[in-house]
């Protein structure tokens, strides 16, 4: 023990500068190798999807037909209801689901979490526990108990896929809670709301014009995770026999593998672009918050 501790200093002292420089150079090389190898692992399946989408599997002919079909899906849906019709319905349903889920999530969580922080502090642990509960209840478990609940939903509303938004809100609850909680913790909620109230603002106005603008970046990141999750959801839609984007891709894959892969890649690119747009927004929010404090 003592020898290993005592030994290095003389060696270091001999050529400290040079040694450190070689070590640092070696570290930089290792760093780039690690990043390159793991990024290659990430990239290869994506490149393969592109390759698969452009090359006709049987003849090996290169063609952009699959992409043009995906782009013109709306018009193809009428002539080919089996494949494109499925996908087009799924895509439309998923788009509506994204909007409904985000709206319900914000309307349900932001006022409740604000109210709990301001007036009912003793409930905060309960709300946190409930919001994080879906982490321990996987979608495949939830769907087992959802059958009877959705039977009632179907009777009251309809069997339309868009009503899956109710359970999707539950799925995004833990992630949305964490994002919003961090946002609410970062502002002086009590002072802001009391100031607004004493100036005569109604609670609705406090939420809409005071709280929401101040936690904008948190709301944006809660929305992003919701969008990503809803666009990728398959389990509940499949087992409750509803049609969303993922079940559409799954059905199409059984007759047209190339179309399924092309659609998957298109959906992934769409999600990536959405993330970039949203991160631009949230980055903006963070900067203005930093400037004001």
């Amino acid at each position: 023990m003592t020898t290993s501790v005592a030994a290095p200093p003389p060696r270091d002292a001999a050529r400290p500068q040079q040694l450190r420089r070689t070590m640092r150079r070696k570290q930089t090389t290792i760093r780039w190798i690690v990043i390159a190898v793991i990024m290659a692992f990430f990239l290869i399946p994506l490149l393969s999807m592109l390759y698969f989408s452009l090359r006709f599997p049987l003849s090996g002919k290169w063609t952009g037909q699959a992409w043009s079909n995906v782009i013109h899906m709306g018009s193809l849906a009428a002539s080919d209801p089996a494949d494109y019709g499925q996908l087009w319905t799924g895509l439309k349903n998923s788009a509506v689901l994204v909007v409904l889920t985000v709206v319900i999530m914000v309307v349900l969580l932001v006022p409740t979490m604000t109210w709990v922080r301001l007036r009912v502090k003793w409930l905060s642990r309960t709300v946190e526990f409930i919001c994080l509960l879906p982490l321990t209840i996987p979608a495949i478990v939830l769907v087992v108990g959802l059958g009877p609940v959705y039977r009632i939903v179907s009777n009251v509303l309809s069997t339309n896929t868009i009503w899956l938004c109710f359970v999707y809100v539950v799925l995004v609850l833990p992630f949305a809670y964490r994002a919003l909680d961090a946002g609410l913790a970062a502002i002086d909620l009590t002072t802001l709301s009391e100031a607004a109230r004493s100036l005569g603002a109604h609670w609705f106005r406090v939420m809409w014009q005071i709280v929401l603008p101040n936690i904008r970046s948190a709301v944006v990141s809660a929305c992003f995770i919701s969008v990503a999750l809803v666009l990728g959801e398959f389990t509940i839609a499949q087992l409750l026999a509803r049609d969303n984007l993922q079940t559409g891709i799954f059905l199409v894959s059984q007759s047209d593998g190339q179309l399924a892969v092309t659609m998957s890649l298109a959906a992934l690119i769409l999600a990536f672009v959405l993330l970039m747009v949203l991160s631009l927004f949230s980055g903006d929010g963070r900067r203005t918050k930093g400037a004001s404090t």
Partner: peptide, 24 residues
Amino acid sequence: VLAQFGGVMLAFAFIATLGQAGMI
């Protein structure tokens, strides 16, 4: 993005990579 990239799409990504007509 990739941490969220589970589901059906991931299965097709690997079929396109290592499946019978996959790139690799």
